[in-house]
Measured scan of single mutants.
Amino acid sequence: CAFTHRPCSHPRLEGQEFCIKHILEDKNAPFKQCSYISTKNGKRCPNAAPKPEKKDGVSFCAEH
């Protein structure tokens, strides 16, 4: 993984420079932040999710 703030030993995603944990660092990657919002604390999930086809579409990470 090419994350520069600290060493990361996670494997890169195929065709990308970053792992799934750090892929949002790459603005050109086909990922965006997960659209899930917790009902308990109102916070948005920080994980990466595939970018949807539509610009305003929602997309969820593997956990959600």
Rank of each mutant, 00 (worst) to 15 (best):
C1H: 01
C1M: 01
C1Q: 02
C1A: 03
C1S: 03
C1R: 01
C1V: 00
C1F: 01
C1I: 04
A2C: 11
A2S: 04
A2F: 01
A2K: 07
A2D: 02
F3P: 01
F3G: 07
F3R: 06
F3H: 14
T4Q: 02
T4A: 02
T4R: 02
T4I: 09
T4H: 09
T4Y: 07
H5W: 06
H5T: 15
H5S: 08
H5A: 12
H5E: 15
R6L: 08
R6P: 13
R6Y: 12
P7Q: 12
P7T: 08
P7V: 10
P7C: 05
C8V: 00
C8A: 00
C8M: 00
C8T: 00
C8E: 01
S9E: 06
S9F: 15
S9D: 09
S9A: 14
S9N: 03
H10V: 07
H10M: 13
H10I: 15
H10A: 09
P11Y: 02
P11I: 04
P11T: 06
P11D: 12
P11K: 12
R12A: 13
R12N: 04
R12C: 11
R12F: 00
R12H: 03
R12G: 01
L13M: 13
L13T: 03
L13F: 03
E14R: 04
E14Y: 08
E14A: 10
E14W: 02
G15V: 00
G15T: 02
G15I: 00
G15H: 04
Q16E: 04
Q16P: 00
Q16S: 11
Q16L: 13
Q16N: 04
Q16D: 02
Q16H: 05
E17F: 06
E17N: 14
E17G: 04
E17K: 07
E17D: 10
E17R: 05
E17H: 09
F18A: 01
F18P: 01
F18L: 08
F18H: 02
F18D: 01
C19G: 00
C19T: 00
C19D: 00
C19Y: 00
C19Q: 00
C19S: 00
C19R: 00
I20H: 06
I20G: 10
I20F: 09
K21T: 07
K21V: 09
K21N: 09
K21Q: 09
K21A: 13
H22T: 00
H22I: 00
H22P: 00
H22Q: 02
H22D: 00
H22R: 00
I23C: 07
I23D: 03
I23W: 04
I23S: 07
I23H: 04
I23T: 06
L24K: 04
L24F: 06
E25P: 03
E25V: 12
E25T: 09
E25W: 08
E25H: 15
D26H: 05
D26S: 09
K27I: 11
K27L: 07
N28R: 13
N28Y: 07
N28S: 15
N28W: 03
N28Q: 12
A29Y: 04
A29Q: 04
A29D: 05
A29P: 05
A29H: 05
P30Y: 03
P30I: 07
P30C: 04
F31K: 06
F31N: 03
K32I: 08
K32A: 12
K32S: 11
Q33A: 15
Q33I: 09
Q33S: 06
Q33H: 02
Q33K: 13
Q33M: 12
Q33G: 08
C34L: 01
C34V: 01
C34G: 03
C34P: 03
S35K: 13
S35F: 15
S35Q: 10
S35T: 10
S35G: 13
S35Y: 09
Y36A: 11
Y36H: 15
Y36Q: 11
Y36N: 07
I37H: 15
I37L: 13
I37Y: 08
I37S: 12
I37K: 10
S38R: 13
S38D: 15
S38F: 14
S38V: 14
T39L: 05
T39G: 12
T39C: 05
T39S: 09
T39A: 09
K40G: 05
K40A: 01
K40D: 08
K40P: 03
N41G: 14
G42R: 14
G42H: 08
G42V: 10
G42T: 13
K43L: 10
K43F: 06
K43P: 12
R44A: 13
R44M: 14
R44I: 14
R44V: 14
R44W: 09
C45P: 01
C45L: 02
C45A: 02
C45H: 01
P46V: 12
P46E: 14
N47Y: 08
N47D: 15
N47P: 02
A48F: 05
A48H: 03
A48C: 11
A49C: 07
A49K: 03
A49N: 08
A49P: 05
A49S: 13
A49I: 12
P50N: 09
P50H: 08
P50M: 05
P50L: 08
P50D: 03
P50Q: 04
K51S: 10
K51V: 14
K51M: 10
K51A: 14
K51R: 11
K51Q: 05
P52V: 11
P52W: 13
P52N: 15
P52C: 06
P52D: 11
D56F: 08
D56A: 10
D56Y: 07
D56R: 12
D56M: 02
G57S: 03
G57R: 02
V58C: 15
V58G: 08
V58H: 15
V58I: 13
V58R: 11
V58T: 10
V58D: 15
V58Y: 13
S59V: 11
S59M: 11
S59K: 05
S59P: 08
S59R: 09
S59F: 12
S59A: 13
S59Q: 13
S59H: 07
S59N: 06
F60S: 03
C61G: 02
C61V: 02
C61S: 02
C61F: 01
C61K: 02
A62R: 14
A62Y: 05
A62L: 11
A62I: 13
A62Q: 13
A62P: 12
E63A: 12
E63M: 07
E63W: 11
E63C: 10
H64P: 02
H64T: 03
H64E: 00
H64K: 02
H64A: 01
